[in-house]
């Protein structure tokens, strides 16, 4: 197959395993492009992309913008903090205004679940979801799975533990869909209050003891504690969370094997992940960031070629 089955990337749930493989194979080629003396190809030179961020972002926004520029697309940026959204404009009005300026693709982050899905029914442009509330973050899941494939050769048959704040994490949900579609086994691990009640219906294991989770897995994807999304207290203190769920070198040295450590960033150092692990030899955190640009180039390129 040479074409994606969809013209929007709204979530991993909506795409097929073949789509993911095609994105990976295309990203392999873009990774080679990124290692050339001139890291730019002219593929999207007739395309304009709007990055619309209704929620804060550093690396995702930067990564998308770099990917777009490496593909020679024209880029416009929009963030809600200094815009008419503050004056009461609706989402569709805002986006339609941007589209009137002849924009072909929209990369959007929004704090509401389903915002890009809603938009995809209202407008013509291709839409890439860069995170919608606590729902999905598809490009992050793609780059995570791509990084596992790069490190371990394949995703199929691998055991991946997602550890931390599962309840508020869009990365967790997208990762579960992506990893399962590629044939990996997935476990979620965290305090009982941070694991959604019905997560087992997705066919994942649930574990509350981080030692057992680490002993089980080949890859540990550590998630950030999202204090900004927590309206109530889910655990007594950060110190206590760190004591029970923080990953440090001592924990890893007690294992009889080596596991791969991942984190989607930004890291709360000393809370969910200690510096001795984050900067250690088993961490592929910076590879994830590097792969993010190649994966996003592949997604934008492939979406642009869907008629």
């Amino acid at each position: 197959m040479q074409q994606l089955s969809t013209r929007h990337l709204l979530g991993i749930k909506d795409i097929t395993a073949e789509d993911i493989q095609l994105i990976f194979e295309t990203a392999d080629n873009f990774k080679e492009v990124l290692n050339r003396p001139i890291k730019k190809v002219p593929s999207l030179r007739d395309i304009t992309i709007a990055n619309i961020f209704f929620e804060n972002s550093t690396r995702t926004k930067l990564s998308f913008e770099l990917a777009e520029k490496r593909l020679s697309a024209d880029v416009v940026n929009f963030s809600s903090s200094n815009s008419s959204v503050k004056k009461g404009e609706t989402l569709v009005d805002t986006v339609n205004n941007i589209l009137s300026m002849k924009v072909d693709m929209v990369v959007m982050r929004h704090s509401s679940v389903g915002a890009p899905h809603y938009l995809s029914r209202k407008i013509q442009a291709n839409i890439v979801n860069a995170g919608d509330g606590t729902h999905e973050h598809p490009t992050q899941a793609l780059l995570d799975a791509f990084s596992i494939r790069e490190k371990l050769g394949d995703v199929a048959g691998k055991k991946v533990a997602i550890i931390g704040d599962i309840l508020h994490s869009r990365v967790a949900l997208s990762n579960i869909f992506a990893l399962q579609k590629l044939g990996a086994e997935v476990m979620v691990c965290g305090p009982i209050t941070l694991i959604p009640k019905y997560i087992t219906s997705l066919g994942v294991r649930v574990e509350h003891d981080v030692r057992k989770a680490l002993a089980w897995c080949d890859v540990a994807n550590i998630l950030r504690i999202q204090l900004e999304r927590q309206q109530i207290k889910y655990f007594p203190s950060l110190r206590e969370y760190s004591l029970y769920y923080g990953i440090n070198k001592k924990l890893l040295s007690q294992l009889d094997k080596e596991i791969v450590i991942m984190h989607p960033g930004p890291i709360n150092r000393g809370v969910e992940l200690n510096s001795d692990v984050a900067d250690g030899p088993h961490s592929i955190i910076l590879n994830q960031v590097e792969n993010g640009v190649a994966i996003r180039m592949a997604v934008l390129y492939l979406l642009a070629s869907v008629k």
Binding site: Q2, Q3, E25, T26, D28, N29, E32, V33, P37, V41, P42, S43, D46, Y301, L302, A304, S305
Partner: peptide
């Protein structure tokens, strides 16, 4: 591989799949 440099991207009926570029010299 010239896939990303073609002048018929988005004009073809079906997209072409890219191949590996291996240039290990300057």
């Amino acid at each position: 591989d010239i896939t990303f440099h073609r002048d018929d991207f988005r004009r073809r009926e079906s997209p072409l799949k890219a191949n590996a570029t291996e240039v290990n010299f300057i």
